[in-house]
Amino acid sequence: MKQRRTLIRKEGQSNIAFRGIQKKKTKYLKDLYITLLDLKWRWATLILFLGFFLSYFIFSIVYYLLSYIHGDFDHIGDPKFEPCIKNLESYWDALLFSIETQSTIGYGTIYPHAECGGTVPAVFVQISVGFLLETILLGFIFVKIARPKHRRHTLVFSRNACLCKEDNQMSLQVRVGDMRNTHLIETHVYGVLVKRYVSQEKHVYPLFQHELEFEAHGMGDRVFLIWPMVLRHKITPDSVLYTLTPEDLLYDKFELIIFLEGTIESTGEMVQARTSYTSKEILWGHRFARVEEYDEKNDKWCMDFVKFNNVVPSKTPRCSAKQFDESPKTDEGAEKEREKASLLQGASKVLTVSEDTLLDYSTASETEAERDSE
Score class of each variant (00 low, 15 high):
167 D>V: 09
141 I>S: 05
208 F>R: 01
208 F>E: 08
208 F>H: 13
177 G>P: 02
186 E>F: 03
152 R>Y: 01
161 A>Y: 04
188 H>V: 10
143 V>Q: 09
183 H>D: 14
170 M>S: 05
147 R>V: 09
197 Y>L: 07
207 L>A: 08
148 P>V: 02
167 D>F: 13
186 E>D: 13
155 L>N: 05
172 L>P: 01
165 K>P: 00
159 R>Q: 14
166 E>A: 13
151 R>C: 09
147 R>D: 11
132 L>E: 03
201 E>M: 05
197 Y>N: 11
203 H>R: 13
186 E>H: 09
162 C>M: 08
183 H>Y: 12
170 M>I: 14
193 L>M: 09
165 K>I: 14
177 G>F: 01
161 A>L: 04
169 Q>N: 07
176 V>H: 04
178 D>V: 03
170 M>H: 08
134 E>N: 04
169 Q>D: 00
183 H>I: 15
174 V>N: 05
140 F>L: 10
156 V>Y: 07
185 I>Q: 07
156 V>D: 05
151 R>N: 11
184 L>F: 06
198 V>R: 06
137 L>N: 01
180 R>Q: 15
180 R>G: 05
159 R>A: 14
189 V>M: 03
181 N>G: 12
135 T>F: 13
159 R>M: 08
159 R>D: 15
177 G>K: 02
206 P>L: 09
192 V>H: 02
145 I>N: 02
169 Q>T: 07
195 K>D: 13
206 P>G: 06
168 N>H: 12
133 L>V: 06
152 R>W: 04
173 Q>V: 10
198 V>Y: 04
135 T>L: 14
159 R>W: 00
178 D>Q: 07
179 M>I: 03
191 G>A: 09
162 C>W: 01
182 T>A: 13
136 I>T: 04
134 E>D: 02
184 L>A: 02
187 T>W: 01
173 Q>S: 10
168 N>I: 07
157 F>G: 04
153 H>S: 12
205 Y>E: 11
138 L>G: 10
204 V>M: 11
186 E>K: 06
190 Y>S: 01
182 T>V: 14
186 E>M: 06
163 L>A: 03
203 H>K: 12
148 P>A: 03
175 R>H: 04
176 V>P: 05
154 T>E: 13
144 K>A: 12
170 M>G: 02
143 V>N: 06
208 F>L: 00
161 A>H: 04
206 P>F: 07
140 F>C: 05
182 T>D: 15
190 Y>C: 00
206 P>A: 07
170 M>Q: 09
141 I>V: 13
154 T>R: 14
178 D>H: 11
156 V>S: 08
138 L>K: 06
171 S>K: 08
182 T>W: 10
181 N>D: 15
138 L>S: 11
185 I>P: 00
187 T>F: 00
194 V>I: 14
198 V>T: 14
181 N>I: 12
169 Q>L: 11
137 L>S: 01
210 H>Y: 12
166 E>W: 10
175 R>I: 04
164 C>E: 10
206 P>V: 06
